[in-house]
Design a binder for these strands. Structure first.
Lengths: 341, 341
DNA sequence: GCAAAAACTTATCGCGCGTAAAGTTTTTGT
DNA sequence: ACAAAAACTTTACGCGCGATAAGTTTTTGC
């Protein structure tokens, strides 16, 4: 088991010329089966791996893929990042995960750093409202990028996400069918464009069904949604602002805060007779099963959103980094009934 | 604003020789103030960045740092990863984040991939029991590595984590002082060595205080701790196994599941007279504030654990990758009293 | 079995930068 | 002001691999 320094040495030991070995590492199926076997035999004996920096320096197209999410400490993004990473690896790419942790400055820096990684493509869930859109647009002009989760009009080669109307229409329909029409509970200045789409969908659905809408906007900035939801809910409940006994939260993290407030104030939540409030929400956050009571929510299709995002990116890369026109793919929600509504 | 191809061109444009420019990028303080000014002036005008692959290929020591955690969808690890990333950046390194998602095979693959990144150092929170310890040990022999959160005896140049005895002693002391002595609630085969230390500390404390210990071991494998805790708690409560009215959970995620079970079964949790159970736990998980009731827990010193981990790694790197002897640094817990106990 | 196609070999260049040596200029301390 | 030290410039090589061209061997199809 000698230590192998470079591909030259390894090629000599395997009895194959270096260019052919190089071809093998680029795509094992591009060489003859017999030579592939000889290389792989040598590979077992000598445990050599090409120098990744030398590879990337010289290849025009690397196998790197950047995955950028707005806040990794949010289990929703951690979860979808997990799917995306696995999808990229399965497609033969080397994903690297980045989180901008809610800071536009950091988001820009990540894109800058990504540039110098010469990535074949990037999967980007932008911060949203806070994003430096011109900056991102410039980035997308240079690097094949698929946006996911959070759409920015016209930016990136494609968008893959969830159909917010499907989310809200199902919960509103369910709530109105089984009880009173819901109020809508959200942040005053949501970080994410999905929030706006959800509010619009709520207003639309209420109009269509002939109910009077009520939108409760709570104060707070940043990504501490649970605390913002809790504090806002305390105010809302103490002031008795609700004109109905049902609340639809813009997202599960707000709902978690709201349920926490209800518990503190002794407001019973659920669909039983002795309950004062029904609460539903959106996202199927990994913890929504464990709130008290368990949260009725509209679930993202994690599998399909992540899967299609990767597919689209691979397709984009194979198409040379440009699409004829920008596509937007939306997956519908799946309503998950639990105890809270 | 011409496009600059390489350092040669940039050096010419800035009026400084290439080797000096190279030195500047390695360490801006290593060049004279006047030349530094000239370079930085040119840098603003021309926006050039050295090719990161060429740098890393030729430097014996890169500025890369790998951060490896066992499960990034666990907000505890996402949170500590956030601190670590920021610490590494502040120290002038380029961190890359990896998660083994509970799979030993993936953990090994990450270490393999890390090897070829020639990292200056690695911050590793191993899976624990499931880890391939021989594999990790071999890795640590080649790459300067600081373990954090989860200790593996003798592996890595140093360990930084939390003092499990401090966690458990404070909660046990508090619970016994204010009511009945607690039972200990944990997984039968915990993934993490901290769990074993916590059980031992519990038994020790109970002995010291003269109480009869009771350890409840719930079934379940993997990293879905909430569901394991919930299912186990349902069984425990239905069978009426508890010989006390207080439960100390091994970690917050189990506690979240337990609280969920209590809610479902109508068992009131808290320190009020009308409550049937008190629940305390360990970790100060980001969501522990929002459980119902809010969870009394022993908090990790995120700041110090992450800060010291980075410090130790930087020190290790500056020492040439080896320490005289392996150090273990433990930070005590801070007891956080909330409604659950 | 034969020609064409496919896969291989040898040879050579280039990528962008780190690094070292030798010579030149600038700064420093007194 | 002067010598020593520090910082710079020029020159040159090497890192490990991608890529290409020209020539050779093997495979393929009929």
């Amino acid at each position: 088991m000698t230590k192998i320094k470079n591909m030259e040495e390894f090629a000599a030991l395997s009895g194959i010329s270096r260019p052919t070995v190089s071809k093998y590492f680029h795509d094992p199926d591009s060489v003859r089966a017999t030579t592939r076997a000889r290389i792989e035999e040598a590979l077992e004996k000598f445990d050599y791996r090409p120098n990744i920096f030398a590879i990337n320096q010289n290849r025009k197209l690397t196998k790197n893929v950047g995955i950028v999410v707005p806040y990794l400490a949010d289990p929703f993004f951690a979860e979808i990042a997990r799917y995306l990473e696995q999808g990229c690896i399965a497609a033969g790419f080397r994903p690297t995960l980045f989180s901008s942790y809610g800071e536009p400055r950091l988001e820009n820096e990540i894109l800058d750093g990504l540039r110098s990684l010469k990535p074949a493509g990037v999967l980007l869930a932008p911060l949203g409202r806070a994003s430096d859109k011109a900056y991102i647009e410039r980035f997308c002009r240079d690097v094949p990028t698929v946006l996911f989760d959070s759409n920015l009009d016209g930016i990136g080669a494609a968008f893959v996400g969830s159909d917010n109307f499907s989310f809200v229409s199902q919960t509103v329909e369910y709530l109105t069918r089984t009880g009173e029409a819901p109020a809508f509970f959200e942040m005053r200045t949501p970080a994410n464009p999905n929030a706006n789409k959800r509010r619009t969908a709520y207003l639309h659905m209420m109009g269509r069904l002939g109910f009077e809408p009520q939108v409760i906007k709570v104060e707070g900035e940043g990504w501490a949604f649970e605390e913002i939801g809790r504090a806002g809910a305390v105010k809302m409940l103490e002031r008795n602002e609700l004109r109905t006994d049902a609340v639809l939260c813009s997202n599960d993290r707000l709902a978690i805060g709201l349920l926490s407030a209800c518990y503190e104030l002794g407001v019973r939540v659920g669909r039983n007779k002795d309950c004062a409030l029904r609460v539903a929400s959106n996202d199927n956050h990994p913890f929504s099963r464990f709130t008290c009571p368990a949260l009725t929510t509209a679930a993202h299709d994690y599998d399909n959103v992540a899967g299609r995002s990767v597919e689209t990116l691979v397709h984009l890369i194979e198409s040379g980094g440009k699409f004829g026109h920008r596509t937007e793919t939306l997956f519908p929600a799946r309503l998950i009934l639990r105890e809270s509504a």
